[in-house]
Design a protein around this nucleic acid. Structure first.
Lengths: 394, 394
DNA sequence: CTAAGTTTGTCTAGCGAATAAACTAAGATT
DNA sequence: AATCTTAGTTTATTCGCTAGACAAACTTAG
């Protein structure tokens, strides 16, 4: 018989309590030791000693005294947000968006590259160049670059290998290993919709929600699932392929091999194809929205039809997950004014009352930064986990 | 600011370690103290003292000495499975299945009632009578009836209120309160598919799986989700309404208000309606299977078509969740021989490789006992949780 | 049959981490 | 100025785990 389970001992207790104190300071800064004790339920003395360790590790700072509430004035504590920095990247089909954030998720610097050719070697060159430029900008700090995170439009395994990125034309790219080889810092590679979901949960529209579904509507459709407050990835990391959920069982064949997939009706690609058919030649979403805003009926109809199709899939989502919130993100956001009412109308008409009553439907609050901020959140979370002392086994 | 979080202290450590020891004994019985220490990673002395407490609480028993492996012979430990009993019930549309189980999930006694009239008052009378009969049978024990659990074909809130049971014609029935009022023991009311999923996970086909989707195919379709090893219920408990997932966007209207719902194509109801159309008057699933087994082409075709429709929805499930296992349960199991190959064929043809490669597709191993055993598992788990000492807050 | 080695299970001492309570510090209130 | 309040530190105590010693009970080898 093999040793199998996590045992519980005082090391674990300390680790968890320390993380709790750190998280409390991060979330409520500036805050005094006394308030931390009250919020967490820990004893004042315990908090004092944990805080002193966190100060030693430069993870937090004292920031002068606060206001008295009738007695001695408190010493306020802050997260030392510049103790380290993340490099967080949204790798898209024809652009890369890269940011440097501090440990609080504040964007220190931002940079975008546009390109046409999606060949792996070429994109990697752009990526290296972008990362190298961001690295130069990062100020000196205690922990330096705590991680590089990349969100990609494709299927990513739990091990950070891109299995398939159809819109880039990539297969089996071990991006995590490639980047680690080059930069020797912790690397996280994650699906773009998963990252977007997490970004909206941590910094965006979903800060109050634990059950959140993020629908990334762009060229294709990807969905990120936050269930019970955590990103849900499935057995191998391939969950959330709702773009390839059949909504028309005898519909046309999708390139994925399935039939009548949602993204054949409700993606940017399908929108632009429909537009082409009725005379909008080579149009972009932006142009269609512009036309719609100028009152062009054909454009308005196109967008509303798209919203209706989106509503069909989102109704399914409500029935499947009973989420607290559904967030619509990625490039389609530009058309929010026209699609959101159509989505709501479809849900209102079709969804089961219990499942639609308490749900909030929102546009991504971080705009085109959902993915990049999700990657930042992954990086930061992973860094703080690594600062917990290792448990020494016997 | 309010006290908000669980703090970690040595009471929690002890509670968790004790639960770990108990669970290890439950899962590996008969087992010696030494082996428990090895398996859990806890110190021998710690195990000894926790075991002695568990013995005092009559939750476990010593059962004589085991075989020596070259030294002193071990004292084997067993779960005291008869320290208490559960009453677990599957409340169906025209029958009630009730069982008494011990704490290991062994069925001690079983009883079924059939009826035609689904009026609440009448069904409750049957239910009371059944429970009363089961109570009489339960032997004297340390903890007595540790809980009554009822699985119902309907939408159940987190608070155990039946919001709607369409096939029973019930609305807003606070069954949990009603039963507690009468029996004064812990009551659990849960959706039938959720219970079935849990039953298969704990005692059935899914014992090795942490990501399991259980599709209960009967008059309607309900789905239970085991994600990350736990039952996933969504924000209010209404997840898993995959029966009302649109698979034909312009399909006929469902009584739920949506269009082209999966259960309009792939449920027992739809099967029997189709059968009626081609001359099987007033047939049952059983009769159709009988006909198919006798080589009647029309019956075979009907069942295969049903399997094909099921395959469409299950393909969606694979894309949405990337599960480890999909289990088909409830009354449709009788037709497994004909529908399973059709389901597999559809998945093979339509599902994305990544999502179908590692998935296991199975028929419920507990047959028509999935729900009842799930309720037993809920009861037992809830009982063991309640035996953990309370953490005294300061 | 005996001596040596092995395994099980208990016991004791010690350690780490949390708590309670006393204490110091520094303000507000009357 | 005297007293009350609140913040933060220090000390003593408690609790649960671990290590290691030890006794009991068994196997194995000569």
């Amino acid at each position: 018989m093999n040793k199998v389970s996590q045992t519980w001992n005082q090391h674990v207790v300390k680790k968890e309590n320390k993380a709790l104190v750190l998280h409390t300071i991060k979330a409520n800064a500036p805050i005094s030791r006394a308030s931390v004790a009250q919020v967490t339920g820990l004893n004042k003395g315990t908090v004092s000693s944990l805080v002193s360790e966190l100060l030693d590790e430069k993870l937090i700072n004292e920031s002068g005294t606060g206001k008295s509430s009738g007695g001695r004035r408190p010493v306020m504590l802050l997260l030392n947000e510049t103790a380290g920095f993340t490099i967080s990247i949204d790798l898209g089909v024809n652009h890369i968006l890269g940011v440097v954030t501090d440990l609080q998720g504040n964007i220190i610097h931002e940079r975008t590259v546009q390109f046409k050719n999606d060949d792996l070697e070429i994109v990697l060159t752009h990526l290296y160049q972008l990362i190298d430029e961001l690295i130069i900008i990062i100020p000196e700090s205690e922990y330096g670059i705590v991680g590089i995170g990349v969100g990609v439009p494709g299927v990513v395994t739990l091990e950070g290998e891109i299995q398939l990125a159809p819109n880039l034309g990539w297969k089996k790219v071990a991006l995590k290993d490639i980047l680690f080889e080059r930069y020797r810092v912790p690397i996280i590679v994650e699906n773009e919709a998963n990252a977007g979901a997490y970004g909206e949960k941590v910094y965006g529209a979903g800060m109050e929600s634990t059950e959140l579904v993020y629908a990334s509507i762009s060229f294709g459709i990807g969905v990120g699932l936050i269930l019970d407050g955590k990103l849900y990835k499935g057995l191998r990391g391939f969950s959330g392929e709702l773009g390839h959920m059949t909504i028309e069982k005898d519909g046309p064949e999708c390139r994925c091999g399935n039939k009548g997939c949602w993204e054949l009706y409700a993606s940017e690609k399908s929108l632009l194809e429909e537009a082409e058919k009725i005379g909008f030649e080579n149009a972009s979403v932006e142009q269609l929205v512009f036309a719609a805003e100028n009152g062009e009926a054909k454009a308005i109809q196109l967008l509303e039809k798209l919203g209706d199709y989106l509503g069909i899939g989102i109704t399914n989502i409500l029935h499947i997950f009973n989420p607290e919130q559904v967030v619509i993100g990625n490039t389609i956001q530009q058309a929010a004014k026209f699609i959101m009412p159509a989505i709501e109308k479809r849900i209102e008409k079709n969804a089961i009352g219990f499942n639609k009553n308490d749900v909030k439907l929102n546009v991504a609050k971080l705009n085109n930064h959902s993915t990049v901020m999700g990657m930042a959140a992954f990086n930061i979370e992973s860094f703080f986990k690594s600062t917990d002392k290792e448990i020494i086994p016997t």
